[in-house]
């Protein structure tokens, strides 16, 4: 079996895996990072979104070996020193979740949205950019509010 090596949440990792191992399986089953979810396994729902070199990807539609040598960030990698990431904090503050199943993917998508679109996101942009993330509970309203606030909070925390 081939060996794959990458950096996950700042830590170098390496393991022998079958070529058909998906990135999400590698994260969940080999590294036990179960924050990244599998909602649909058909590339639709976005529950599995992680960042690879800062770019959001559906980890259910990526083989682990495709990100050989890359920097992967999962939901577990966002909080620093026991303090929630501003986007996580915003989801808590604005009640941007109910069952929470979609939340890791939503937050990873939201953070990347800020990387691409900046800190001042209007409602239309947020809704359009959430095209690849499905939520069965909330009706999206509070998710949109949370992302709006989280995007601004990310600027404030970067400046601080």
């Amino acid at each position: 079996m081939p060996t794959v090596s990458m950096t996950v949440n700042g830590k170098p990792v390496s393991a022998e895996v079958e070529p058909r191992t998906l990135l999400v399986q590698f994260l969940r089953e080999h590294l036990r990072l179960t924050g990244t979810h599998v909602g649909c396994d058909t590339s639709q729902c976005g529950a599995c979104v992680v960042h690879v070199d800062g770019v959001a990807m559906k980890s259910c539609t990526t083989f682990a070996w495709q990100v050989e040598g890359c920097h992967v960030t999962t939901i577990e990698g966002l909080a620093k020193d026991g303090k929630l990431h501003p986007m996580q904090e915003a989801f808590r503050e604005h009640h941007g979740l109910q069952c929470g199943f979609c939340t890791p993917g939503m937050i990873m998508a939201a953070v990347e949205m800020v990387y691409r679109k900046g800190h001042d996101l209007d409602e239309k942009t947020i809704r359009e950019e959430l095209d690849g993330n499905l939520c069965r509970c909330t009706g999206y309203h509070n998710i949109v509010k949370a992302i709006h606030a989280g995007a601004r909070a990310m600027r404030d925390s970067a400046g601080a």
Binding site: K58, D131, G132
Partner: peptide, 9 residues
């Protein structure tokens, strides 16, 4: 095409 994550790949 698709959504942002699909367009990224």
């Amino acid at each position: 095409i698709g959504d942002p994550h699909v367009r990224n790949r």
